[in-house]
Simulated scan of single mutants.
Amino acid sequence: MDTNSEDVTSPGEDAQEADLSEYAATKAKFPDAPVLYTLEEVAEIFRVSKSTAYALMKKQNWPHLRLGTMKRFTQGDLEKIDAIHRHPEDAWLEHAEARARMRMQRPRIGTRAAR
């Protein structure tokens, strides 16, 4: 009996190959376009969970782009995030200054409001 030994690829591999070929086609069409990373990819790069990355993004005011409701990160954003974690005292100071600005902007409502 003659058997053919063909490479059998799983549906996941086909989708991955399609994504890579789509990426290559887009990169060829727009060679100067920046690479944008998703929050999941950023979490993978920094080796934290997606929920931890999201919490840190909100707490530490990570730089990012908003495209509608999506959040995307450039290579420059990743370098700034890395710098925040390499020099946490500077990040804490910036965060404290941002919180102070927010407090000053809040309206005073309730008893003994400033007049």
Rank of each mutant, 00 (worst) to 15 (best):
Y54L: 15
Y23S: 11
H87N: 14
V42Y: 00
I84L: 14
E22D: 10
S49M: 01
A83G: 15
L56Y: 13
D14H: 09
K50M: 03
N4Y: 01
A25P: 03
H85E: 08
D77A: 04
A43T: 03
L65T: 04
K58A: 12
T74R: 15
E79Y: 05
H64Q: 10
D19C: 07
S51Y: 13
L93S: 10
Y54H: 06
D82K: 15
M57I: 08
A15Y: 00
K80M: 09
T9G: 05
N61P: 05
S21R: 11
L39E: 13
A113F: 07
R106W: 00
H95L: 07
R101L: 09
Q75S: 11
R103T: 12
I109R: 06
L36I: 05
A55N: 15
A43E: 02
E41N: 02
D90Y: 01
A91I: 02
T52W: 10
R99Q: 07
A15G: 07
S10W: 06
A24F: 08
K50A: 10
E94L: 05
R66M: 09
A91C: 11
Q16I: 04
E40T: 15
E40V: 11
E6V: 10
R47S: 13
E97M: 09
L56Q: 12
S49Y: 06
I45H: 08
T69A: 10
Y54E: 11
R106Q: 10
A96T: 07
R115C: 00
I81K: 13
A43F: 03
M57D: 12
E22P: 00
V42F: 02
T69R: 13
H95V: 03
A96S: 06
V8D: 04
L36N: 00
G110A: 04
T3Q: 06
Q105F: 03
H85V: 07
A114E: 14
M1C: 09
T26N: 07
R101D: 02
K59P: 04
R103I: 04
L36Q: 08
Q75D: 10
A24P: 02
L36A: 08
Y37C: 00
A113M: 02
A98H: 09
G76H: 04
Y23D: 10
R115P: 03
L93C: 04
D77Y: 02
A18S: 03
F73E: 04
Y54M: 06
G76N: 12
L65K: 15
T111H: 04
S5P: 00
T74N: 01
K71T: 14
Y54T: 13
T26A: 11
D82S: 14
P31T: 04
F46Q: 09
D77E: 07
E97L: 15
A100E: 09
I109H: 00
P107F: 02
M104W: 06
D7E: 10
R99M: 05
N4F: 13
P31S: 01
K71D: 01
S49K: 09
